[in-house]
Design a binder for these strands. Structure first.
Length: 104
DNA sequence: GTCATGACGGATC
DNA sequence: GGATCCGCCATGA
């Protein structure tokens, strides 16, 4: 609609249930731009406070850069606290907690 | 309207 | 699984 892709991205990210995570590509797909996962990342960087951007990860199951949430450890702590299973290698168990944004 | 940029994804090695 | 290269698209200046 008139809302920019960024607005739609914020809306979807805000709907991510606790204990689950989604990928930039999935969000991009939900906003109608399956080829624009970069926009999602960009939107996260510009994201206002209150947005659970820590629940958004890349498809590899790895978290965003260390300095994005006050530390890689901090983001992992938040996710684990919500019930997101982590693997021994420090990555998220995508097959178990992946959530597909059906909002759009 | 054009240029440069970006919290990525996929393919390939 | 990890690292590297290329490509995609919207936003901001």
């Amino acid at each position: 609609m008139d809302k920019s892709v960024f607005e739609q991205i914020y809306d979807i990210v805000a709907r991510i249930p606790e204990g689950q995570v989604t990928t930039y590509g999935a969000i991009a797909l939900s906003v109608g731009r399956p080829r624009a996962p970069r926009m999602v990342g960009n939107a996260m960087h510009r994201a206002p406070e209150g947005l659970p951007c820590h629940r958004v990860v890349n498809k590899t199951g790895a978290l965003a850069h260390e300095d994005a949430f006050g530390g890689e450890f901090f983001q992992r702590y938040l996710l684990e606290n919500e019930g997101v299973p982590f693997l021994e290698n420090g990555r998220i168990d995508m097959r178990a907690c992946f959530w597909f944004p059906d909002g759009a």
